[in-house]
Amino acid sequence: MTALITESRLADPDRTYRALIEAHRGLSDEDSAALNSRLVLILANHIGEHSVLQEAIALAKQSMEPVEPASE
């Protein structure tokens, strides 16, 4: 079973990020959400492992929690 990879794997992260921005440029919020839904499904199928998707969901949810101030 593979684990979710969180180290960078992209040769050119800026270019990948830009591709996502371009895909959404000019779209209404509703169309953007529809596009994202399709992307999530396509990418989930490409990942092909339920457990990796679960880890990705957990990471995404974790990043939505309020950040605790760092204690030093």
Partner: peptide, 14 residues
């Protein structure tokens, strides 16, 4: 919800 419906419709479209 609206997003559940989006996922559903995205699946149908794909």
């Amino acid at each position: 919800s609206a997003q559940e419906l989006r996922f559903r419709d995205a699946t149908l479209a794909l």
